[in-house]
Design a protein around this nucleic acid. Sequence first.
DNA 1: GTCTATAGCGGGATAGAC
DNA 2: GTCTATCCCGCTATAGAC
Lengths: 201, 201
Amino acid sequence: MNAVNESPRRKELTRLAAQLFVQEGFDRTTVRMLAQEMGIKSGSLFHHFRDKQEILAAVIEEGTQNALSLARQALENCGDSARERLHAMARAHLETLLTDRNAHVVALYEWRRLDAAARDHLSHLRDAYETLWEQVIDEALEAGLVHGDRFLVSRFVMGALNWTVRWYDPEGARKPEDLAHELVAMIAPATQRTAAESTKV
Amino acid sequence: MNAVNESPRRKELTRLAAQLFVQEGFDRTTVRMLAQEMGIKSGSLFHHFRDKQEILAAVIEEGTQNALSLARQALENCGDSARERLHAMARAHLETLLTDRNAHVVALYEWRRLDAAARDHLSHLRDAYETLWEQVIDEALEAGLVHGDRFLVSRFVMGALNWTVRWYDPEGARKPEDLAHELVAMIAPATQRTAAESTKV
DNA sequence: GTCTATAGCGGGATAGAC
DNA sequence: GTCTATCCCGCTATAGAC
């Protein structure tokens, strides 16, 4: 259902669907709106997707997969210090949310609209992404960069980032990278540099 | 429309509507579901509310109003230090979100579903609540408890708190107060106590 | 792969009796 | 203030021609 049925056409349709789901929300997006955006009639949609649910699942799979690989990439291309890795992770997260402005947002905000089967199928993917976050947070905790409970710190940090979707202004002066920088500064002020951290750089 | 039409019956109906809106989301909650929960038939609903939109507006007004007065109350009954005030504010916020589990959640998560007129009418209320938050954050910044931009810190903190709705387990061991404590500890570690703060206590 | 046409359902809302 | 009955609409999804 996933890696198999991946025609370029379907990929393109998924991309357009993501855009509408972000703008209108999944429930308020009708198949007619989707079809119009894609330049076809609503009946033709069901040649590509079994039903509306499957479109949502495709968007969320795409969005999470994308966030995951961009995050891994960012971690590979950044420095070794816990601070740099935390920053890279936050920045990658924000870029998929605020620049892309599409599938990843849907994955976060419309997850609850998935039916049980789709949630089951996609939860391992979501877990992989959250686990990656927890690893980076763990490193920050061990480096003494941040303090607190691993689970709670992860949730708070991801919450702060996820909520940016609600207030961020793409036309404004602040870029995703700036937000990432400010968030890291907030939870791990520069004055808190520890011995462990400085030896790493 | 607001303070006027406040029969006890309508208040009770609003309370029940809030519950359903949290469980199902506004769009997926039908007037028939609402009526059933209230023990009446769907037609009778429209004696109390002009349309479904007005129910949403009533819930959101109630939720924001309530959060605002609880927050003010919490600030009056806590110590004078910036840390105590920040903690009190976070705790009040989480309690309206996680214990109440109703109108305030709807206010945050279904705001976008309000029509233009209702948003217009309610935005001053929301602004008042957010301004209160910014004041408390300002105090924390001035006390050297937290560092960064006032606007961004407010948004990040509120985001971290608002997102708890998505993962918090009411049956779990952690109480809203514990979360509030952990959040404050995360952004303002105890080792950061400044002279300004200790003189206040 | 897309079209037209439409089935079939469930939604929000109204009217008038009680 | 609640009921029954119902209108009307727009939604998802299907069928079969092209």
